[in-house]
Computed example of a mutant assay.
Amino acid sequence: MTAPAVLVVEDDPGLRVLIARALQQNGFAVYQARSGPEMWNSLEQRPVDLILLDIMLPGHSGIDLCRELRARSDTPIIFVSAKGDETDRVIGLELGADDYIPKPFGTRELLARIRAVLRRRPSNSDPNQAREEKVRFAGWMVDLRRRSVLSPSGASIDLTGAEFDLLTAFIGSPQRILGRDRLIELSRVRLGDASDRSIDVLVSRLRRKLSNAGQPAPISTVRGVGYMLTADVTHD
């Protein structure tokens, strides 16, 4: 089995080496970059399974790089930064980051978060099994195994790992009110706790992507409680 490849983008040489060493000792293939240009150069040479991206970088910030990365690919991104306030978490979510881990952090937490994000990635599977895991709601089709989404018109919709996990949580409990804490638990969102805006931003992003031909997404807000998928869900 090929080792998962992680690109560590961090300008602090000591921390970068420590992270790389910890990941290598736990079975990951690790590549390193000190800045945006080095990151792009590394990605041109080889694809990776996940990017650990520091926010405070020389030249282009991690925020800018995340925006550019999302315009080019859906490679999972975990922000790593000493800036751990709510604003940064929300910005990370808005730009499509899959997770956010504030410094300082321990090796066990870092490994757990990386593995959780990688588990969300699509995997090659038997097509007969894949057909059994397709669900439909309001004209939308979701392939749970392949982690793909088709609009009522048949267009493929790109969702980040966190967005797809959130959609899966709604699909699993249709027409039931789900509180923020429950959504965080079900979707494995780790970018904040139930008291901040992290889950609200994710829901807002998902709604935008599930809007179709002027029709709003079938996700309603239950004020003071949470959210609900209002459509019926059927399984193929």
Rank of each mutant, 00 (worst) to 15 (best):
V189Y: 11
V17N: 10
A20H: 01
L23H: 06
L15A: 00
I171C: 09
R197A: 13
Q24D: 14
L57H: 09
A3M: 09
E185I: 00
A169L: 05
M39S: 13
F137N: 13
W40L: 09
P102I: 05
D181C: 05
R113D: 07
G139V: 15
L159H: 01
S42F: 11
R223D: 14
R115W: 12
I78G: 02
D200F: 08
R176Q: 13
S81K: 01
R113P: 08
N212M: 11
R208A: 12
S156R: 15
V222G: 07
D193T: 13
V117R: 04
S204P: 00
N124F: 01
M141I: 08
S187R: 12
S35K: 01
S42C: 04
V117N: 03
I91W: 02
P218I: 09
V80C: 02
L15P: 03
I219E: 00
P37N: 07
A71L: 12
G226D: 06
M141E: 15
R121I: 05
D158S: 10
R207V: 12
T160C: 09
D126W: 11
K103S: 02
R188L: 04
L15V: 03
L167E: 01
P218W: 04
L144E: 13
F137T: 12
A20F: 13
N212K: 08
L186R: 02
D232L: 15
V189C: 14
D200E: 14
R21G: 07
T87E: 11
D165V: 00
D236R: 11
L57W: 12
M39W: 09
L159T: 02
Q24N: 15
D12I: 03
P47I: 06
A97H: 03
R46H: 05
T168M: 11
S195L: 00
D158I: 13
A116M: 08
L15D: 06
L65F: 10
D158L: 12
V17H: 15
V90Q: 13
L69T: 03
S153N: 15
D88P: 08
I157D: 01
E44N: 07
D158A: 15
L206Y: 00
L144M: 12
L150F: 08
V203C: 04
R223V: 09
V142G: 01
E44I: 03
V30P: 03
S173G: 05
L118N: 07
S148W: 12
A29T: 13
H235A: 15
K134L: 04
L93N: 10
R208Q: 10
Q175M: 13
G84M: 06
R121W: 08
V149D: 10
